[in-house]
């Protein structure tokens, strides 16, 4: 994983299909404090593509989107 940023919290939505990964991430992000890092683990392709976009629209920063395996992604979000 050799990531220099340490996530404050992790949200594991693997197994969930659209729109749950997106909705759960949005809800989680709203509860977190500014500057905190949220790590989201998901395995739904469409959400991996679209969730970062909607999170960016909310004003948060996507630090990293990485593919961690077959159909699995890890996304790091920095709360604004």
């Amino acid at each position: 994983m050799n990531s220099d940023v340490k996530p404050t919290e992790t949200l594991d939505v693997r197994g969930e299909v659209c729109p749950y990964p997106d909705v759960k991430t949005q809800k989680k992000v709203k509860k977190m404090k500014s500057g905190e890092i949220l790590e989201v683990l998901l395995d739904y392709p469409l959400s991996a593509e679209r969730m970062p976009r909607s999170i960016e629209k909310m004003g948060h920063e996507i630090l990293k989107t990485e593919k961690t395996g077959t159909g699995e992604w890890r996304i790091l979000i920095k709360i604004k």
Binding site: R14, G15, E16, V17, Y20, D43, P45, K67, T70, G71, E72
Partner: peptide, 14 residues
């Protein structure tokens, strides 16, 4: 081809 095929399941409730 996209490397996205994977057997997966949500929880029982879902």
């Amino acid at each position: 081809i996209a490397g996205e095929f994977k057997l997966r399941a949500p929880n029982a409730r879902r």
